[in-house]
Design a protein around this nucleic acid. Structure first.
Ligand code: MN
Ligand code: MN
Ligand code: ZN
Ligand code: ZN
Lengths: 154, 154
DNA sequence: CTCGTTATTGAAAATTATTTTCATTATGAC
DNA sequence: GTCATAATGAAAATAATTTTCAATAACGAG
């Protein structure tokens, strides 16, 4: 809900980190920033070409990887079509995806899982280092049209 | 922790459901059942050939899809290599994966997320239908050798 | 047990997704 | 502006998955 980094900020952060500020990167970052849902690389490419007509799909992949690496976006997994990419705004948020319109909102969630983690650590002897949580459902607008019934979980 | 379906049971369930009990299917089910971690299709294929030398990778894919469809196995997602498949034993369990040895254990977890869900529903207006939760860490045996540091989350 | 129907299979080809290579280009420091 | 080189895009390579289709094997009927 709270937008923490603007498109502009991400770019300047990358610049400070030593990356060159190119047209292609600017286009991809802008597309991700303006999207209100997850996008697949091909979709990012299509959108990005509007801002940078010469951009190639390869560069989209490379830029997405860069943005994942630096924590600005995150991969979203599905039963079918892996993978989509969505903006990360919260330091440790999770993604809630509408299966109707693919709108993606981020929710805070560091604390809620702590007790579960602790218990699992104790029960299993594992040291838990990270977790992946995705919620799927229908946004308010899509609830009247419950299309595409599709299970999640893997 | 509680094994609910034996390899034999899965096969007879499938038979009751109208599927033919073939060598290939038996081999794949057996491999999945005997594995103590997640496996990728290629790995399932390699193992299955030991029981059914003529089995093709295509049939492995088909059988895995069948088993997912009927809820006997589930896909596991990773940063890199999507996807692995792991045995599902609990009615609504989640998977805990060791990043060292890929050992996969299932944990119960129907109730733990209920409060979070309720809150998110209220806050976002979404109707939440399902969720994907994967935990990643190091099992007891792998803790002394913290190899391959690798983040999770998507 | 044999036969006949047909679901299932495997090989090969086709798709789709992603990565690598490499010559060219554009960015940013000076 | 000039220069060094990080970054790019096209094409090829690789990986992952699906489709096609003729051959096969499962299994119920007889
Ligand atoms: Mn995935
Ligand atoms: Mn659950
Ligand atoms: Zn929606
Ligand atoms: Zn381990």
């Amino acid at each position: 809900m709270t937008k923490t980094k603007s498109s502009r900020q991400i770019l300047s952060d990358l610049k400070s980190a030593g990356y060159r500020l190119t047209q292609s990167r600017a286009a991809v970052v802008r597309v991700i920033d303006e999207a209100n849902g997850w996008l697949r690389p091909e979709q990012v490419h299509a959108q990005a070409k509007k801002h940078c007509p010469s951009i190639g799909l390869v560069t989209v992949y490379r830029t997405l990887a860069l943005l994942v690496e630096h924590g600005y976006i995150r991969r979203i997994h599905f039963d079918d079509k892996c993978h989509g990419y969505a903006r990360v705004e919260l330091s440790h948020g999770h993604h809630l995806v509408c299966r109707g319109c693919s709108q993606t909102v981020e929710i805070a969630g560091t604390e809620d899982l702590k007790p579960l983690m602790k218990q699992v650590q104790k029960e299993t002897g594992f040291v838990i280092e990270d977790h992946l949580l995705e919620l799927v459902g229908l946004c308010r607008e899509c609830q009247p049209n419950p299309t595409r019934p599709r299970s999640r979980h893997g």
